[in-house]
């Protein structure tokens, strides 16, 4: 059921002829989303939706099959004492961990996403990146989270970045491609918009803010800017692109603010894990805590929520 896009046209400069972004205006717009008051039923609905959109993530040098196995169990057993909760959308791991995760998750419905292209820096030759991606796909990854060459982008070599994304897209096959812009290194919202447009034109199924290794990561300003790029592309072509803010979203409140933003910028069609994801490692437990609070009226200590 997951849709992947067919590979797209050749690079042209119009693709990066992006509209100007006024940072102050973006900050104001984002502040408006944050004043939305989400209460009662809509809060509970939003929290459950957030859970189902999480890409539970472990991306560390010290990752082992054991660690990944435990996280995968958590992915589809978020809180077994409370029935009726969704599973997370996916787990996100390094290519070397894909096979273990795949085996663990089998028919759970939880997808396996693999980072690739010499994540997180992307500083490797093209064939290494292709090999890295092909390996992950062969191991069974349902989704590929690639990083763009930020150095090339900042040097103005847009066609290089375009070709890079397009060739990775080609080896993805049926795996959906998420393109990580690493917005913390792009520095300006103008750059974020330009990189979003470039990635979308080059064939991204999703655009993603960050690796989680660089600060700032998924600020609402950055996510808003990327959502506007998705919106403009949809208005022009009717093609939907997914969005994944990753890094720094660790509280329910922030997750709900993000959902408000998605709803008001893109509409309800994007409010599901087919089109929107949170890349996060600690968000799930905070959301669980809030869900249980809204059902029982009592906050429980973090000791009541498993850490995997």
């Amino acid at each position: 059921m997951s849709q992947t896009r067919k590979t797209i046209s050749k690079f042209n400069l119009q693709m990066v002829d992006s509209p100007a972004i006024d940072k102050v205006g973006v900050e104001e717009r984002v502040a408006r989303f944050q004043t939305r008051s989400i209460k009662n039923e809509s809060k509970l609905q939003g929290l459950k939706m957030s859970l189902s959109m999480i890409d539970l993530t472990t991306l560390e040098g010290k990752d082992t099959p054991g660690k990944v196995k435990q996280m995968c169990y958590k992915a589809h057993h978020l809180c077994d004492t409370h029935p009726g909760l969704p599973t997370v959308a996916a787990v996100c791991v390094y290519p070397s961990m894909v096979a273990f995760a795949k085996k663990e998750l089998k028919d759970s419905g939880v997808k396996v996403a693999s980072v690739s292209t010499a994540f997180p820096s992307g500083q490797a030759p093209m064939d290494v990146k292709l090999l890295d991606t092909r390996f992950a796909v062969d191991e069974g990854a349902d989704e590929i989270d690639m990083v763009i060459s930020r150095g090339k982008f900042l040097a103005g070599e847009y066609s290089f970045v375009f070709d890079e994304i397009a060739s990775i897209k080609e080896v993805c096959g049926n795996a959906r491609l998420k393109v990580i812009l690493e917005t913390g290194e792009l520095a300006t919202l103008d750059n974020v918009r330009k990189a979003s447009d470039l990635a979308i034109h080059a064939g991204a199924d999703f655009i993603k803010t960050s690796t989680g290794k660089i600060q700032p990561a998924a600020t609402m300003q950055v996510t808003y800017t990327m959502l506007m790029a998705i919106k403009d592309y949809f208005d022009k072509t009717g093609i939907m692109i997914g969005m994944k803010p990753a890094g720094g979203i660790s509280t329910s409140k922030l997750a709900l603010h993000n959902l408000v933003m998605v709803k008001e910028v893109l509409g309800d069609a994007w409010l599901n894990n087919e089109w929107f994801r949170f890349g996060a490692s600690s968000l799930a437990n905070d959301v669980l805590m809030q869900i249980i609070k809204s059902e029982t009226g009592i906050y429980q200590s973090s000791d009541y929520f498993s850490i995997d």
Binding site: S42, G46, M49
Partner: peptide, 9 residues
């Protein structure tokens, strides 16, 4: 798609 509406606040 099912819509997510804000409850009165």
């Amino acid at each position: 798609v099912p819509s997510w509406d804000y409850a009165p606040s």
